[in-house]
Amino acid sequence: MGTINGALTEAVYYILLSLLQPMHGYGIMQNVEKLSGGRLRLAAGTLYGAISTMQEKGWIFALSADGDSRKKEYMITDTGREVLRAEYRRLKELVENGRAVLEEDAK
């Protein structure tokens, strides 16, 4: 459970970044849009699917005890943090390799 098998989707990466603080569904949508400078707008169904799967994998958990999903807040778990940091390292490697090759190409 919780291990990372490949690249995360952009949506999952930004959702995990958002959930370093407790947040409900609509809050996540707004935060992702803000973090990405308005570029990434999560679709409601996509967000719902991602939240369900990440809960199953133990990357995030629901904070509120009542069953009303309108008020339910979510937060990242320790496993989720590991996944997020691993993805950050992977993305950094992509950017650094890209920079090295493209700078060479530009010479």
């Binding site: 989707t9 949506a11 949508m29 707008r41 679709a43 169904g45 996509t46 699917g49």
Partner: peptide
């Protein structure tokens, strides 16, 4: 109130 999409990515569109 902002954009309204239910399926924003290919994976969920294909699943649908």
């Amino acid at each position: 109130l902002g954009d309204f999409e239910l399926h924003g990515d290919n994976a969920t569109r294909i699943k649908h």
